[in-house]
């Protein structure tokens, strides 16, 4: 197996690792590419030319990977909905206690969960658009692969809550202290965070483009391999925050330079790491 070919394909697919359909696509693609590479070599091409021609035959794979991931998400949702067929649109769950509740594959559009205690519940592959989770206790809850568009999470309790691979467009998180919350592989560019403290949050592989994170506190937070173009941290506090990029990704390092850290306060470690990435730290206070 050609090492460079492998590395190239792995790099493209890395953010989607674990999504079954995408892993399958990667295997299919690698097998084709290997065969093409071998044929080119047999025709007498040198390694470098064969590799270049093989990579050229892939085309716009990023877009295909996105399509395949989205297709799975909607398929998964359909299958589960058919299984449980619990249509709970606009239901009233305000103030209820439902520890370890399972809301898999349910339609919960516009439902009211305000003030409820849903510790340990899962909302996998459900449709939870326009729902209200204000003041709800969502400790150890899992919200993965689902649609949460336009839901609100004001003053919710978020401890070890997982929001991975979900659609969070138009979602508001206000006045929250998040502890060890996972927001990985998620598009957050249309999400609102206001007056939040992030203690141990993980934003790895998420897209945060243009996001306003001004005046909020980040302790032990990971922004590794995230899309950070034009993010603002004006007046924010950052302690032990990590910004690691994927190897050889010029895009990530270019994005770091577009982040606004004006009037932010940060510890020496975070400052040093960001300085190494050539971020603009001219108006930063080191604490």
């Amino acid at each position: 197996m050609n090492e460079k070919l492998h590395q190239y394909v792995n790099g493209v697919f890395a953010p989607y690792k674990g999504v079954k359909s995408v892993d399958e696509l990667q295997a299919d693609l690698l097998s084709d590419l290997q065969e093409r590479f071998n044929e080119l070599k047999k025709e007498g091409k040198d390694d470098e030319t064969a590799l270049e021609m093989t990579i050229d035959s892939i085309g716009d794979i990023e877009q295909t990977v996105q399509e395949v991931a989205n297709l799975t998400r909607s398929l998964e949702r359909q299958v589960l909905t058919n299984l449980s067929s619990s249509n709970l649109t606009n239901s009233d769950f305000a103030g209820v206690t439902a520890h370890k509740g399972k809301f898999a594959g349910s339609s919960l559009i516009g439902s009211d969960f305000s003030g409820s205690d849903l510790t340990g519940s899962t909302f996998k592959s459900s449709d939870v658009r326009d729902a209200n989770f204000n003041g709800a206790n969502l400790t150890d809850c899992t919200f993965s692969t689902l649609d949460l568009s336009n839901s609100t999470f004001n003053q919710s309790i978020l401890v070890r809550t997982v929001f991975s691979k979900s659609s969070l467009a138009g979602v508001t998180f206000r006045d929250i202290t998040m502890t060890d919350v996972k927001l990985t592989m998620t598009d957050l560019s249309k999400t609102t965070f206001e007056n939040c403290t992030f203690d141990g949050a993980d934003f790895t592989n998420s897209s945060l483009e243009g996001l306003n994170l001004d005046h909020q506190t980040f302790i032990g937070v990971k922004f590794d391999k995230a899309g950070l173009k034009d993010v603002t941290f004006r007046g924010a506090t950052l302690k032990n925050v990590s910004f690691k990029g994927p190897a050889l990704s010029k895009k990530f390092y270019r994005a770091i330079k577009t982040i606004c850290f004006d009037d932010a306060r940060m510890d020496k470690l975070t400052y040093a790491a960001l300085k190494g990435l050539e971020a603009d730290l001219s108006k930063v206070t080191v604490i």
Partner: peptide, 17 residues
Amino acid sequence: YELKEATMYSSLRRLEA
């Protein structure tokens, strides 16, 4: 006409669905 791998698999996944 050179069909790219990405275009082919995008089409195959759609046809499969």
